[in-house]
Amino acid sequence: MAAAQENTARVGGNGPSLTREQFMDAFHEMLLIRRFEEKAGQLYGMGLIGGFCHLYIGQEAVVVGIQMTLKDGDKLITSYRDHGQMLAAGMTPRGVMAELTGRATGYSHGKGGSMHMFSREKNFYGGHGIVGAQVALGIGLAFANKYRETDEVSVAYFGDGAANQGQVYESFNLAALHKLPCLFIIENNLYGMGTSVERASASHELWRNGEPWGIPGKRVDGMDIAAVHEAAAEAVAHCRAGKGPYLLEMMTYRYRGHSMSDPAKYRKREEVDQVRKTRDPIEHVRQILLDAGVSEDSLRKIEDDVKATVNDSAEFAQTSPEPDPAELYTDVLLEA
């Protein structure tokens, strides 16, 4: 088989699938997020990152799979667990890491921090520290798409914890009422901080929570990038065609605590280990690629590239200057 054909052939067994090229890209992106977050955890431990820091480790397939279905101009918004979303959106590891360490070269010049980062250029609208606020803001992004008569879609990510906020349901109603092109993504990692979803929600099928408003929904294996991609492609097409919002519940898992100071006593270590061993989204893709004949060497090259990128971002984030004291007073108001 010629190399060109190999690259476009679908691989990955019986289920939904991607091309080998797509799996390679996804492997790179997911690994970048994982290594970046591990490095962020390390810098936090060294006291170089302060305050709150919520890591995305374990959930990488969700954001990477969805991002593969989007196009330029589509808008993104998420909660405070936002580092993965930003990297997937194409924001630079240097800029994100430097914001984590509170430096002038960070995306918000050191004034936002882990939970509050934005990129006008990449259509990334934050990074929000108030649980659920990004959902109402997210339908506003979709409202703007519709108002401007574009076919752009907005993606609003939120967790299973935020899914109990009242404004989420106000937003479902408004999005359905006005047929807004908004893709709602519930990243169900099973715990809202330390409270399991069973103890927090009387609805055990969050993907159906939009049903009263006629919002189509699906539950997806969020640890399987191909499944994420397939469901997201269908949902994005629905939104882009002007048929209104769509809801996907991504079943995923975070390996680390809710934040850095979470001892995670609400779940057993065996539970975490079990997911890591049997459902890890990155190992899953690695195996698919090896099965498809990709050499260990080419995967190691990706790993080395990612490691170099992440180390570079950490170096940049540690050596960049803190914001100038004058920065304290800027960006409060725009000149009228």
Partner: peptide, 21 residues
């Protein structure tokens, strides 16, 4: 016209404003 849903429609309007509307 908005339904009686101040939290939701205010958030929606702020989101639209962040895009420049």
């Amino acid at each position: 016209d908005m339904p009686i849903t101040e939290h939701g429609f205010t958030g929606m309007a702020v989101g639209a404003a962040l895009t420049g509307l």
